[in-house]
């Protein structure tokens, strides 16, 4: 059985398990959709009061908001195993069992759970994204291929954060909530046009954590909106690749962490 077939079986089992409680599942889904949509109401209120968000129209802000939420929800769906890695694998010592299996630890952890709950965030993100395109006057034809490319780049970048967070547990044992600064904090920051932030934060969000490379610049290219800070528009066509580079770096770090792993269990 190759890695892909194995993953498909684990994912199938996980989906079946979640659908065992259809009532809870439906409630969580609806709750997730409604509550995340309410958070867009906050941005909309700011827009409503000030007429624009720092000179950006509501369409552009909606596209940014939708893009970052859709990307994050995909990563949340796939990467649950990394999210709980510290408490459920390292602290308990059950990571030892994964190491005994003749498969990549990354595949096994991806198969920990294929989480369906983030579908709520995905749907509302897609909904706001659609509304954003509808409200924007100059949507480019490039969007057709650029949108999936940007979402893929964003999803693997967030997955990279989750893997990096899990690799950190090799040192800290217990998962550190501080990493939420990069996941939930990343979503929060990605909702706003990056020009609103101070220079140090803009640099961090482009070159250290390539958030703007998978959200802001592709969105500019899709909307034919020139960058106020002078980055050429074609940069947005290529920049989602930086999400993949980030993931590759995090996987390298993960490999180093596994090599130096010392079990905490007995």
């Amino acid at each position: 059985m190759n890695a892909f077939t194995l993953y498909r079986r684990m994912a199938g089992a996980s989906i079946k398990a979640q659908l065992r409680y259809p009532g809870t599942f439906a409630l969580q889904l609806v709750g997730n959709f409604v509550t995340t949509l309410l958070s867009f109401f906050g941005i909309w209120s700011l827009f409503h009061r000030f007429g624009s968000i720092a000179g950006w129209d509501i369409g552009a802000v909606a596209v940014l908001y939708g893009l970052v939420n859709v990307s994050f929800s995909v990563a949340e769906t796939l990467g649950r195993g990394f999210d709980v890695f510290g408490s459920e694998y390292v602290k308990t010592g059950s990571f030892d069992r994964l190491l005994l299996r003749p498969r990549s630890t990354l595949v096994l952890l991806l198969g920990h759970e294929l989480r369906l709950r983030p579908i709520g965030r995905f749907l509302q993100g897609a909904f706001v994204l659609g509304a954003g395109f509808w409200l924007s006057p100059h949507v480019s034809w490039n969007t057709v291929w650029l949108l999936p490319w940007a979402v893929a780049g964003g999803a693997v970048m967030f997955l990279g954060i989750l893997i990096g967070q899990a690799a950190l547990c090799f040192i800290t044992v217990e998962g550190l909530e501080v990493v939420n600064v990069l996941t939930y904090g990343g979503v929060e920051a990605g909702q706003y046009p990056i020009t609103m932030f101070a220079r140090w934060l803009r640099r961090f969000l482009t070159w250290a954590l390539p958030l703007s490379a998978v959200c802001y610049y592709p969105a500019l290219a899709m909307l034919n909106h020139p960058d106020p800070l002078g980055m050429p528009l074609w940069f947005g066509l290529l920049s989602p690749a930086m999400g993949f580079v980030f993931l590759a770096l995090m996987m390298l770090w993960w490999r180093r962490g596994v090599a130096g792993y010392v079990s905490s269990g007995s």
Partner: peptide
Amino acid sequence: AISLMAYAAVYHHA
């Protein structure tokens, strides 16, 4: 910090 920068930008533009 993120919220503050966002508010500052919004207020200064309007």
